[in-house]
Amino acid sequence: MEELDFATAFPFSEGAKKYISNSLINEKVIEIAIERIKRGMAGEIRTTALFSENDKIEWIASFATARMILGFLKNSNITNRFAVTESKIARSMLDKIDEKTVERVGEIFGITTINDGKNIIIDMCAFLKNSPRSIDYKLINRKLTGGRMEIKASEKRRLIEEAIRKRIEIIPLVKDPPQEIKAAASRIDALVPKSSTTVVIKVDNHPPCIAKLLEGAKNHINLNHQARFYLATYLTGINVSEDDITKIYSDLPDFNDRITRYQIGQIKKKGYTTPSCATVMTYGLCCAVCKIGSPLNWHKLSKDRKEEIINGSK
């Protein structure tokens, strides 16, 4: 892959910086950056075809500019959505390029692997730092020896995707940017529906594991598959309506109304019930010692006992 193409596809790489160091923030780049943030907010995984060298450089610059706008805006919801979308787009690139280039992207994040001809081997810490916290990536189900383990080629790409998301999610605050950036930020801000963030249910009425997930959703943290599934089964279990559950999920960075409603529907249709505490533990989502067997039994506890558990888990 040509240097410029690499930088265009992976604008967070060191090499990308050299293309933008001289280019100023101009009107066109700001427009592209705004479009890019909007694409992030909508979760649209589409790439833009770029032909001329100039287009590519502007595209790289728009990434840095978008980050500047987000750094000034300080809206974790938009930032996290942006990070999810950008990482998914980068992932779609990773699926298309050759192994050598994938390796190069991995190295940016310390994801280096050895290919012994049969297996791809990775250091367990690189794996831990970049794996999604889902049951498929639980360490316990892996062959781990001497601090190393095997992964599949597709898993390696998934680790890189996660690393990209985490990297983009961390945005330095921008206190006093140029006027154009401020103006762009307020245009983005105007797009945010102001009413959507009403809290539907009170966090502290629920067991610690659920409270944590609700807090997480509220703070626009990208909950993994198990967490969403568990939360949805729990909320259905205590008879929260589909609309209200959807509202809670709308705070997630990669929220999609249609998919969310479909999934809630499936939970009801297939009769998935709230998992037991033991199962929640295997998801890695249990965070206290409630000794209640099922999270639903939380509501049978006395007020004192609840407080005792909550204080103990802090």
Binding site: D123, C125, L128, K129, R133, I135, K138, L139, I140, N141, L144, G147, M281, T282, Y283, G284
Partner: peptide, 24 residues
């Protein structure tokens, strides 16, 4: 050194690992 930069959740994975949480 390898473990030094692991954050809480990643360390939790290690606790799960040694405690057998999720072992099938």
């Amino acid at each position: 050194e390898r473990f030094r930069s692991l954050m809480g959740e990643e360390r939790r994975e290690l606790v799960d690992y040694v405690m057998g949480n999720g072992l099938n």
